[in-house]
């Protein structure tokens, strides 16, 4: 259902709003049918809403949601529907009635349903058991730790950096002092796409010939990025570079709120310096082919490229208040 667009930047709220809207429509339709004396039985209303939610999650949201998450959502929505249909005694009785009718076999039709259920349910369970024992050629699931805890210190080019306190030397204001608020005010804007605040202002456009200080260092970081990193992490820093799909998993998407946006700058410095090979034991199964960039870049170049990544994505590095 990709014709109805999920708008970047608004997707999470869009999903909730769409679900809320459709539930509201159901409620209104049900109300209208009830008024007309054709109300949907509670049992079918509950089952229908649950099936709708599963179909919505499977076919409306793209890229596809992994099964584990759909299973969680399915269970929670199932519990919610149970709470709704059994919230009051009257509703619970109404919900149970078709099930009890079938179990009691109150008519020929219900007896037929009961017989069918007695055949279908064991067969379905047997089928499930059989298929779960069939050999699978899929790679096994790996619970990968995406953000393993960094060490307290890291040594790069002979210098020891204490990750909890060290600061990016290029994140400075016009006086050359470390100033995150100053630099935060100069990153691109996150709106419908990512845009510089003022392309004609050397304070905001790193490629302006008059750009100085922080914004100039961003440009230098960008040059390093496009010489070394964009092949995998992509022109838009979204992990969709030319070589991205040669790897499994594909490279990190920096534009996602769950990657660099929630990490300290020093964490990124450490990961860039040490690469996949430098992941700690906690980072099992060490599924990262990123080279240890300390073998190719200087300390200054690493700091600058990290700063560029934050600037370009419009995110702020995490800090401690």
């Amino acid at each position: 259902m990709t014709w109805l667009k999920l708008v970047e930047g608004y997707m999470p709220m869009q999903m909730i709003s769409e679900l809320a809207g459709s539930i509201l429509v159901f409620a209104l339709v049900n109300w209208a049918l009830n008024r007309a004396g054709m109300g949907i039985p509670k049992f079918w209303a509950g089952v229908g809403v649950w099936i709708y939610i599963q179909l919505y999650l499977k076919y409306r949201i793209y890229p596809p949601i992994p099964f584990s998450v759909r299973a969680i959502y399915g269970t929670v929505s199932g519990c919610g529907i149970f709470m709704w249909v059994s919230g009051s005694e009257g509703e619970w009785q109404e919900f149970k009635r078709p099930i009890l009718n079938v179990m009691d076999g109150i008519s020929g039709f219900h007896k037929g349903m009961r017989t069918a259920a007695l055949i279908v349910i064991p067969l379905a369970l047997g089928g499930f058991a059989y298929s779960s024992f069939l050999p699978s050629f899929e790679e096994p699931i790996e619970l990968r730790t995406v953000h393993p805890a960094p060490p307290a210190t890291t040594k790069v080019h002979g210098r020891t950096f204490v990750l909890q306190v060290v600061e990016n030397p290029y994140r400075v204001n016009n006086d050359g002092k470390y100033d995150q608020a100053f630099t935060d005010a100069r990153i691109v804007e996150q709106a419908m796409g990512r845009l510089m605040k003022d392309v004609n202002d050397p304070n905001y456009n790193p490629w302006d010939p008059n750009a100085e200080g922080y914004i100039k260092y961003v440009r230098e970081g960008g040059e390093i990025f496009f010489q070394n990193c964009h092949f995998c992490h992509g022109d838009n820093l979204n992990g969709r570079g030319l070589w991205a799909y040669a790897f499994n998993p594909i490279p990190a998407n920096f534009t996602d709120a769950g990657t660099i946006a929630q990490l300290q700058e020093t964490f990124v410095f450490w990961r860039v310096s040490k690469g996949g090979i430098g992941l700690p034991g906690e980072g099992f199964p060490w599924a990262s082919v990123m080279p240890p960039w300390e073998q190719h870049l200087t300390v200054d170049e690493i700091w600058k490229v990290v700063m560029f990544e934050y600037w370009h994505t419009g995110y702020y590095p995490r800090t401690w208040d």
Binding site: M11, M15, P66, E139, P249
Partner: peptide, 21 residues
């Protein structure tokens, strides 16, 4: 951190889901 098969990971296009992430 979502539990998924490598095939799902590829279909999703990365470790983070753009909506659920």
């Amino acid at each position: 951190t979502i539990v998924m098969t490598p095939a799902e990971l590829k279909a999703m296009g990365g470790q983070q889901h753009p909506v659920l992430g």
